[in-house]
Structure formats: structure tokens, C-alpha cells
């Protein structure tokens, strides 16, 4: 680059700080939506399919476990295990997406235009699903790069960033699952 060659460690520290700042910033969107949910629905909640809700939630939670395995395997330099685990994560994330957008949105008793309940439900699941979609794309890129020999035990910032982002999306769903499926009474 210039007079001072910057080491990988220096850049890694910078990247980490940048990613966490981005996630902190992104969290404000989800907090804002949750506030909107509390204001508009209060102690009510949408009438939704509980079985489907628990299935997709379990899928997403379990995917975070495999994401963690993928990152640890890469840190140990075990490429086949890394690829296997990240692929499973990707599949589980896709199942979550299909479950929410493909099934839940279709079987719900209300559409996005049906009052505050519809607006809140589709906005919260939609914003979150968009993040899951970008996460799945991110996973696919990292998986594909990993297949082509990128990343090593020492240098795998791409994998790490992908894992942190995926866990973030997962944690958001923890709150949203409670907010949309568990708390309050159906209205």
C-alpha cells in the first residue's frame, strides 16, 4: 500500500470493530420495529400458526450451532468439515425462509393490508426475512469461496464475519419470535 505496510492483524481488528458498529447500527431498525409493535398491538399479538412458528425457530437456532462449528473447523484448518457445516447452515437458513415467507405468509388469516396486526406482522417478519436472505447469500459466497481454496486457519475473516452476522440475525429472531408468537393474547 504505502510507506507503512499494514499487517493482517491490524486490518482484522479494524474489520471487527467496523462489523460490530454496523450490527449495532442495524439493531436500531429492529428495535424501532419492536417499539412500533408495542405501540400498535400492546398486549395483543397476531393469530399465527404455533406449530410452524416453533419449527422455523428451531431450524434457525440449530443453524447457529452449525455456523459455529463451521467457524471453529476453519480455525483448525479442517476444510471438509468447514464446508459440510456451512452447507448445513445454509440449508437450515433456506428452510427458515421458506417456512416464513413461503408457508406462514400464505396460511396466515390476514394480509399485510389488514389493520395494524397485518402491518406489524408482515413488516417484522419481512425485515427479518430480508436479513436472513442476505445472510444466506453471504453463506453461499463464503461456502463457494471456501470450496475454491480461499481462507486458512490463520486468515478467515470472511468466515468469521459471516458467522457473526448469522448469529446476529438469529438473536434478533429470538426477540421477534417472542414478540410475534408468544407474548400477549391473539387478536
Amino acid at each position: 500500500m504505502s510507506a507503512v505496510a499494514e499487517s493482517y492483524a491490524v486490518k482484522l481488528a479494524r474489520n471487527r470493530l467496523g462489523l460490530w458498529l454496523f450490527l449495532f447500527s442495524d439493531a436500531f431498525v429492529f428495535i424501532g420495529l419492536f417499539v412500533a409493535r408495542m405501540v400498535l398491538l400492546g398486549s395483543g399479538r397476531p393469530e399465527v400458526d404455533q406449530t410452524l412458528g416453533i419449527i422455523v425457530t428451531v431450524m434457525l437456532l440449530v443453524s447457529s450451532f452449525f455456523m459455529n462449528r463451521a467457524e471453529v473447523e476453519m480455525a483448525h484448518g479442517n476444510r471438509p468439515a468447514f464446508l459440510r457445516n456451512i452447507f448445513i447452515t445454509m440449508v437450515l437458513g433456506t428452510i427458515f425462509l421458506l417456512g416464513v415467507v413461503g408457508v406462514e405468509w400464505q396460511v396466515a388469516h390476514f394480509g399485510p393490508g389488514d389493520g395494524a396486526v397485518g402491518a406489524v406482522f408482515y413488516a417484522m417478519t419481512g425485515f427479518h426475512a430480508f436479513h436472513v436472505l442476505t445472510g444466506v447469500i453471504f453463506l453461499f459466497i463464503v461456502w463457494n469461496n471456501g470450496r475454491n481454496g480461499h481462507y486458512s486457519a490463520e486468515k478467515h475473516w470472511g468466515v468469521e464475519a459471516c458467522a457473526i452476522y448469522w448469529h446476529f440475525v438469529d438473536v434478533v429472531w429470538m426477540f421477534y419470535y417472542v414478540g410475534l408468537y408468544l407474548m400477549g393474547t391473539p387478536i
Binding site: G32, A36, V39, L40, P112, G113, G115, A116, A119, A123
Partner: peptide
């Protein structure tokens, strides 16, 4: 999409917008 966040006649709240 006609999502009624701020339409008071359909359960929305225009003041919510002002807070956000």
C-alpha cells in the same frame, strides 16, 4: 401495500411516525 402503520381508522397511529 396498504399496511396500516399510521392509519388511525385501521388501528395505526400517526403519532408513532413522529416519535420514530
Amino acid at each position: 401495500f396498504g399496511m396500516a402503520f399510521f392509519d388511525a381508522t385501521r388501528g395505526g397511529d400517526p403519532i408513532l411516525y413522529q416519535h420514530l
